[in-house]
Amino acid sequence: MRLLLIEDEPEMASALAANFGRHGILLDHVANLADAEAALADHCHDALLLDRRLPDGDGLTLLARLRGGLQGEGHIPVIVLTAQGDLSDRVAGLDAGADDYLAKPFAMEELLARLRAVLRRPSGLAARLTQAGRLAFDPEHREASVAGEVLDLPRRELLVLEALMRRPGRTVMREALVEAIYGFEDEVQSNALDAHISRLRRKLEAAGAGVEIHGIRGVGYLLRATP
């Protein structure tokens, strides 16, 4: 899962990135509306976390353009995170098209629960169990398991697996996999993706997952159940 945070407080952005990372979620961060529009044009995100008081305007102006079809995003789930928590502010945010509205300060556990809730809705990321062979991936709880036993996977391997499990039996392009597991600020080595895939293959085989990850030279990878 990849989120976009639009927030001008670097300390909060760093804290959120660290917390989401511990749950296997990749968080990209921009500090203003202009950079947010550029990020939405160039990258795919599963949800947005949007502050209101930004250096170049109210975050609700971006929300209004999103709901009007900005960059072809359609209905990407948006949670507004802001210090403007009065009733009138909450009503304005929800009326502008926000899927949820959370006033600062907030507990990380509540933000995660609200994120799971908006992604369960029909317009959000399909929060259903995906299976191939004996392997299952639960996007709501960010867990991969084999025959009910949860696999202990580092964040990037979990993100690779999630991207492959979203399209079982179909090739996922290298560029799409790299985008799924690396954020804006990450330095990506040329063989990093292949190294993650190699380690993931060994762990799936050792766990008896009943799946194989096949490389399509120069194109990408696909995951499918073994015969």
Rank of each mutant, 00 (worst) to 15 (best):
L4R: 04
L5A: 07
I6S: 10
E11Y: 07
A17D: 11
F20C: 02
G21T: 06
G24T: 09
I25D: 05
I25E: 05
L27V: 15
A38D: 10
C44R: 14
C44Q: 15
D46E: 06
L48R: 04
D51F: 05
D51E: 14
R53V: 11
R53L: 08
L60G: 05
T61Y: 01
A64E: 10
R65S: 15
R67G: 00
G69L: 14
H75K: 11
P77Q: 12
L81I: 07
T82L: 07
D86T: 11
S88A: 15
D89M: 11
D95V: 12
A98W: 01
D100M: 00
L102D: 00
A103D: 02
K104N: 04
P105Q: 12
P105N: 13
A107C: 01
M108H: 04
E110N: 04
A113C: 04
R116S: 09
A117E: 13
L119S: 14
R120F: 06
R121I: 03
R121T: 06
A126G: 09
Q131H: 12
P139C: 13
R142K: 11
S145A: 14
V146K: 07
V146M: 07
V146N: 10
G148L: 13
E149L: 08
V150S: 06
L153G: 06
L153D: 09
P154Q: 11
E157V: 04
L159R: 03
V160W: 01
V160E: 03
V160Y: 03
L161I: 02
E162T: 05
M165E: 08
R166Y: 05
R166N: 08
R166M: 06
R167L: 09
R170W: 03
A176Q: 06
L177T: 03
A180Q: 02
I181W: 01
G183S: 04
E187H: 15
E187M: 10
S190Y: 08
N191R: 13
A192L: 14
A192G: 07
D194S: 14
D194P: 01
A195N: 06
I197F: 09
R199Y: 09
L200T: 01
R202V: 08
L204I: 08
L204Y: 03
L204E: 01
E205D: 11
E205F: 09
A207N: 13
A207W: 05
A209D: 07
V211F: 11
E212V: 12
R217E: 15
V219W: 02
Y221E: 01
Y221M: 03
L222I: 12
L222W: 07
R224I: 03
T226S: 03
